[in-house]
Amino acid sequence: PRPRERDFRGDAVIAAAPKALVDRLKALGRARGGASLYMVLLAAWSGFLHRLSGQDDIVVAGASSGREQAAVARAVGMFVNTIAFRTRPDAALPFAAHLDAVARVALAAYDHGDFPFEAAAALAGPPPPGRNAVFDTMLSYENATARAFRIADLNFTSREIAMQAAMFDLALDITEIDGALTLRFNFATQLFDRATIEHWAAAFSQMLAAIADNPDGPIGGIDLVTPGQAAVIAALNDTAADYPREATLVGLFDAAAAAHAARPAVVSGDTVLTYAELGAAADALAAAIAGRVAAGACVGMLLPRSEWCVVAELAILKAGCVFVPLDCGHPPAVLAHILNDSNCAAVIVDAGTAALLPGTVR
Rank of each mutant, 00 (worst) to 15 (best):
A230I: 11
L278A: 07
L52P: 12
L99P: 14
E277G: 07
A109I: 02
D193E: 15
S342P: 00
M301E: 06
G10T: 06
A345M: 08
L339Q: 09
R74E: 15
L208K: 03
T274S: 15
R159P: 14
P325C: 02
P18W: 12
D216G: 11
A144N: 07
A257H: 09
A212G: 02
R245I: 00
M301C: 13
G125N: 01
F323S: 08
P215F: 03
V361D: 01
D11Y: 04
T87K: 04
F187E: 06
V105T: 14
A44K: 00
L303A: 02
D283S: 11
T274W: 15
Q69K: 03
L25D: 07
V272K: 08
I197C: 05
G320T: 00
F135D: 00
V311M: 08
A294F: 08
V299Y: 13
L52M: 10
V72F: 10
L123V: 13
D213H: 01
S46M: 01
F135H: 07
R30T: 15
V349L: 05
A70N: 01
V232W: 00
A265D: 09
A210F: 02
I233S: 00
F95G: 05
A259Q: 13
G221E: 13
V361H: 08
E307W: 14
R9T: 14
I174W: 01
R32E: 12
R32G: 05
V102L: 02
L25N: 04
A295P: 00
G329D: 11
P218M: 07
Y38M: 05
A281S: 08
Q164P: 11
R131P: 00
M138P: 00
L326P: 06
A355Y: 02
L317H: 10
A203D: 10
R263A: 15
A31N: 10
T248Q: 06
P218T: 02
I83R: 01
F8V: 02
N186W: 11
A73T: 10
S64L: 01
S64D: 05
M78V: 09
